[in-house]
Amino acid sequence: MITPFPELDALLRDLNESARAILQDTYVGGYLQGSFALGGGDAQSDADFIIVTTVPPSGQVEAELRRLHADIPTRPGFWSDNIEGSYADADSLRGAAGIGQPWLFVDRAHREMTWDDHCNNLHTRWILRNHGITLGGPPPRELVDPVSEQAMRESARQALPGTLEGIREWADMNHAWTQRYIVQTYSRVLYTAETGKVASKPAALVWARSKLDPAWLPLLTQVAEDRAIPWKPVDPPRPGSMQRAYEFAAYVETLAASQWGGG
């Protein structure tokens, strides 16, 4: 068993074997990272994969991968619309020097792939090396250099200022999902800034509830409880909850600035 969901397990195995057949001798390995690798994946999570190649996909290989990922969301079942990930060449994945290089990427619920650095960060490398689940190929520790806790702390501290503005660029700020996402994201980034490790969203909320000012307990509890609510196209935040999320973001950024000078 890879995850608690047999349907997702079957899809991940099929994805890995389909990609292996397309990539042939450029296939290195397939891995599950993200919340499921961290032990916190649930029905509200996406399943984050990394498939490692010897060289970036191009030509006919890239075209076939694009056809594969255009097909997956059309398949029956819940999870076919809830996977995302990248095809990372082994050289740029190995260490921090490769950060920023675009990888062939498919976003959750999308059929069109893009070249994007979405997965190419220290966060992904840390999860992959320390907790990645192997779908095929060598253990991920053989492919990713160690990421120090200090590097993780510094990266998180630098990311905190302006995180909310980054979310505003792509998220619907009148949706309940976004309200939850803001609180969970700030909890996760603060956790990493403090510990040098990465936690799943549920685990980060538990940590925040035990570590932060008790005044934030009602908000953190609301977000934890509301994770079980399925995503809906139209779903406004609870009255007053979005403003409270904004205040939480400001609180975390101020806390970070007072402790670490904002990065």
Rank of each mutant, 00 (worst) to 15 (best):
Q60S: 10
Q60Y: 00
V61Q: 14
A63M: 08
A63S: 15
E64W: 02
E64I: 10
L65F: 11
R66I: 01
R67C: 11
R67W: 08
L68N: 12
H69G: 02
A70V: 00
A70R: 05
A70W: 01
D71R: 14
I72V: 15
P73Q: 02
P73I: 04
P73K: 04
T74V: 00
R75H: 02
R75N: 04
P76T: 03
F78V: 03
F78L: 02
W79K: 01
W79R: 05
S80G: 06
S80N: 09
S80W: 01
D81N: 06
D81F: 01
N82G: 06
I83T: 14
I83H: 10
E84M: 00
E84D: 06
G85A: 08
G85T: 01
S86P: 04
Y87E: 11
Y87R: 07
Y87L: 11
A88R: 10
A88Q: 07
D89N: 15
A90R: 15
A90G: 11
D91W: 04
S92L: 13
S92K: 13
S92F: 14
R94Y: 15
R94W: 15
R94M: 10
R94Q: 14
G95C: 10
A96G: 14
A96L: 05
A97K: 13
G98S: 10
G98M: 09
I99V: 14
I99G: 02
I99F: 08
G100Y: 10
Q101K: 15
W103I: 04
W103P: 09
W103F: 13
L104R: 04
V106P: 02
D107M: 08
D107W: 02
D107N: 11
A109W: 04
R111Y: 00
E112S: 11
E112A: 10
M113V: 02
M113I: 02
M113T: 04
T114N: 12
W115K: 01
D117F: 03
H118G: 05
H118R: 10
H118C: 12
N121R: 07
N121A: 01
N121P: 00
L122G: 09
L122A: 12
L122S: 13
L122N: 08
H123S: 14
H123K: 12
H123T: 12
T124L: 05
T124S: 10
R129M: 06
R129G: 07
N130V: 05
H131D: 03
G132H: 07
I133W: 00
I133T: 03
T134Q: 11
T134E: 13
L135G: 13
G136Q: 07
P138T: 01
P139I: 03
P139Y: 01
P140R: 07
R141W: 09
R141V: 11
E142C: 00
E142P: 02
E142N: 09
L143S: 06
V144E: 02
V144T: 03
D145K: 05
D145L: 14
D145T: 06
P146Q: 07
V147R: 07
V147P: 07
S148G: 04
S148I: 01
A151H: 13
M152Y: 05
R153T: 14
R153G: 15
R153D: 15
A156K: 06
R157K: 10
A159K: 11
L160H: 12
L160D: 08
P161N: 04
P161V: 08
T163I: 01
L164E: 11
E165Y: 07
